[in-house]
């Protein structure tokens, strides 16, 4: 009682805040439904019997990463656009704790929503595969790994968005940075030097995490690749927490 506020208090605050915004439910639900729909269409269009249908039906994460990434940004920048940051940081002067609590609460929600999305994509997408295309099951080697890692990828892009929001604080600029970093950077960097593919998150997601069959140029283990993807939000969260504690609000 007299020891002062803890991570648990702050996490409860963030959990109540997350649940009490209707826009979060609709954006997350709608965006992830569209992600699943892309997977179903990809399943319908899969013709190559020797291909990787698991990877195909997870194609919706190209959209899904944007949904979680942008929601992650807004989870942080909403504090600053509304002026609520002053109330928050007056209530919790240890600002790193606020970022940590947001990361824990939003990260858990993104992970749960991400895994539900990829499992739904897998079952619905493989359910509509045409005759002649072998239907994978979760018991097929590497399939469960590919599906779950892709769900984790959605959580990691959400955390990256949160961290970028803490670094940039301005919603539109932070969204542009996340979209640019996830989408545009791979096009440019990956296009200039294909050997850099295995360190660019979006290319890792499609070519390693979601892949059951090896993709040329991506020879590292998916676990190492997942760790590389995770390093981005980890580094950005550390920098965001450091900066958040030092800037005036």
């Amino acid at each position: 009682m007299n020891d002062g506020y803890t991570f648990g208090h702050v996490a409860r605050m963030e959990w109540i805040r997350l649940r009490s915004l209707r826009a979060v439910r609709w954006t997350l639900g709608g965006g992830l439904a569209a992600t699943i729909a892309i997977g179903v269409v990809a399943g319908l269009n899969t013709r190559n019997a020797a291909g990787d249908p698991t990877s195909n039906v997870l194609a919706g994460v190209v959209l899904g990463q944007l949904i979680t990434g942008v929601l992650g940004v807004l989870a942080m920048t909403g504090e600053f656009s509304s002026g609520m940051a002053r109330v928050t940081f007056a209530a919790v002067p240890r600002r790193g704790l606020v970022l940590a609590a947001k990361a824990a609460v939003w990260g858990a929600v993104f992970l749960a929503a991400g895994e539900v999305t990829v499992l739904a994509s897998f079952f619905l997408g493989t359910g509509v595969l045409r005759a002649g295309v072998p239907r994978p099951s979760l018991a097929t080697p590497d399939v469960l790994r590919a599906v779950l890692m892709t769900g984790a990828y959605l959580a990691l892009t959400g955390l990256l968005g949160l961290a970028v929001g803490a670094l940039i604080r301005h919603g539109a600029a932070a969204v542009a940075t996340v979209v640019g970093g996830l989408f545009v950077a791979p096009l440019i960097i990956g296009g200039v030097d294909r050997s850099l593919g295995p360190v660019l998150p979006e290319l890792i997601a499609g070519n390693s995490l979601a892949a059951v069959q090896p993709v040329s140029g991506f020879s590292w283990s998916p676990w190492l690749e997942l760790a590389i993807v995770a390093a981005y939000p980890a580094a950005a969260l550390a920098a965001g927490g450091w900066l958040l504690a030092r800037r005036d609000v």
């Binding site: 702050v10 915004l21 509304s82």
Partner: peptide
């Protein structure tokens, strides 16, 4: 600042969250 809250949340939700932070 009188408007230091997120517009999409109810007044009660705003306070419930703060109450959690304050134990």
């Amino acid at each position: 600042d009188a408007r230091a809250f997120q517009p999409g949340r109810s007044g009660r939700g705003h306070l419930l969250a703060l109450a959690a932070a304050g134990g």
